[in-house]
Amino acid sequence: ETQAGIKEEIRRQEFLLNSLHRDLQGGIKDLSKEERLWEVQRILTALKRKLR
């Protein structure tokens, strides 16, 4: 995994995270989306740690 590859994956995950946040802010309670949001946040945290 290169730095560029990790950064690209971070961009993808952040896009997905923002999309999930928008969907959930629409007021629709969706447990699967909430679980996915937490999963994406965990992935992002792990990726950012790899960059250090």
Rank of each mutant, 00 (worst) to 15 (best):
I6P: 00
G27V: 05
L37K: 03
W38G: 09
L47G: 00
E39S: 03
R12W: 03
R11F: 04
I6D: 01
E14L: 11
T45V: 11
I43D: 02
R11V: 06
E8R: 10
S19R: 13
Q3S: 09
E14P: 00
G26W: 07
K7D: 02
L31K: 12
L16C: 09
W38Q: 13
A4I: 15
F15M: 14
T45C: 07
K7R: 13
L20T: 00
A46N: 07
G27E: 11
D30S: 03
E35R: 12
K33H: 07
E1Y: 09
K48R: 13
R22G: 06
A46D: 14
I43C: 04
K29D: 08
L16Y: 06
E8P: 00
K33R: 11
L44K: 00
E9S: 04
N18L: 10
E14G: 02
A4M: 06
A46Q: 09
E8Q: 08
K29F: 15
Q13D: 03
N18K: 11
Q13C: 15
E9G: 01
E34C: 15
E14K: 05
E34L: 15
D30T: 03
R49P: 00
R42H: 07
G26C: 12
R22W: 03
R12C: 07
L51Y: 03
R52T: 14
R49M: 11
E1F: 11
T2D: 10
Q13T: 13
L44R: 00
L20S: 00
L37Q: 02
D23Y: 06
L31D: 11
L17H: 02
T2K: 06
K33S: 06
F15Y: 09
H21G: 05
K7V: 09
L47H: 00
Q13A: 13
N18Y: 13
S19I: 10
L31Q: 13
H21S: 09
S19E: 13
R42D: 04
L47D: 00
Q25M: 12
E9I: 02
E8N: 06
L37D: 01
Q41K: 14
L44D: 00
I10M: 02
S32M: 12
L17D: 01
A46T: 08
F15V: 13
Q25N: 07
Q13N: 10
I10N: 01
L37E: 01
L24N: 04
T2P: 05
R36P: 01
G26K: 07
L24R: 02
W38M: 14
G27F: 05
R52K: 12
E35G: 04
L16E: 06
K29N: 11
L51V: 03
L20G: 00
A4C: 04
I28P: 11
G26T: 09
E39V: 05
I10W: 01
K50V: 08
K48T: 03
N18T: 08
A4W: 07
L51D: 02
I10C: 03
L44H: 00
L37T: 02
D30Q: 03
E39M: 04
L24F: 04
D30R: 01
Q3I: 15
L51C: 04
Q13L: 15
E35V: 09
F15T: 12
E35T: 06
R42M: 11
A4R: 09
Q25S: 10
L24G: 02
R52A: 14
R11I: 08
R36Q: 13
Q13S: 03
D23E: 13
A46H: 06
Q3Y: 13
T45I: 13
L31S: 12
R42S: 10
E14Q: 12
Q3H: 11
R42V: 07
F15S: 15
E8D: 11
A4G: 04
E39G: 03
L16D: 01
L37N: 01
E9K: 05
K48E: 02
R52S: 13
R49T: 09
Q3E: 11
D30H: 06
L37M: 14
L24P: 03
E8I: 05
F15E: 14
L37H: 05
R49I: 14
E39D: 05
L16M: 03
R42Q: 13
Q25W: 07
K7Y: 08
I10H: 00
K33P: 06
T45D: 13
A46G: 06
N18E: 13
T2E: 12
K33C: 03
L44W: 01
T2A: 11
E14M: 11
L17V: 05
Q3V: 15
K33I: 15
K7W: 12
D23N: 03
L51A: 02
L20E: 00
L47S: 01
I10A: 00
I43M: 08
I10R: 01
D30E: 04
I43S: 05
Q3P: 10
E8F: 03
K33L: 14
G26H: 09
K29C: 06
H21I: 15
Q41P: 00
Q41G: 03
K48Y: 15
I43V: 09
E39R: 03
K50L: 12
L31N: 09
Q41L: 15
A4V: 06
S32A: 15
K33M: 09
Q41V: 14
R52W: 14
S19Q: 14
L24V: 04
I10D: 00
A46Y: 08
L17E: 05
T45A: 13
G27H: 06
G26I: 11
A46R: 06
K48I: 13
L16N: 02
S19T: 10
L20D: 00
T2G: 06
R52E: 15
R11K: 10
I10G: 03
I43H: 08
R52C: 15
K48H: 09
R12H: 05
E39L: 04
E9P: 02
S19H: 05
R49S: 11
E35Q: 12
S32N: 13
E8A: 14
T45L: 11
S19D: 06
Q3F: 11
K7L: 15
H21Y: 15
K50D: 04
K7F: 06
R36F: 06
I28K: 08
W38Y: 12
L20Y: 02
D23K: 04
E1M: 11
R36T: 06
R52I: 15
K33F: 09
Q41S: 07
L24T: 05
I28S: 10
V40W: 02
Q25T: 11
K7A: 12
E14C: 12
K7I: 14
R49G: 04
K50G: 02
G27R: 00
D30C: 04
V40R: 01
R36A: 13
E9H: 08
L16F: 05
L37V: 09
E39K: 06
Q13E: 02
E34R: 13
F15C: 13
Q3K: 10
I6C: 03
K29H: 11
R11W: 03
L17M: 06
I28L: 11
K33Y: 10
G26D: 12
G27P: 10
K29L: 11
R11A: 08
R52Y: 14
N18R: 12
E39Y: 03
E34K: 12
V40C: 06
L20P: 01
L17F: 08
T2M: 10
E14Y: 15
L24Q: 04
H21K: 15
N18S: 08
R49V: 10
R12L: 14
A4S: 08
E14R: 04
D23Q: 11
L17I: 04
R42G: 06
L17W: 09
K29A: 10
E35H: 10
L20H: 00
L51K: 01
I28M: 09
R49K: 14
E34M: 15
R36I: 05
R12Y: 09
K33G: 04
S19G: 05
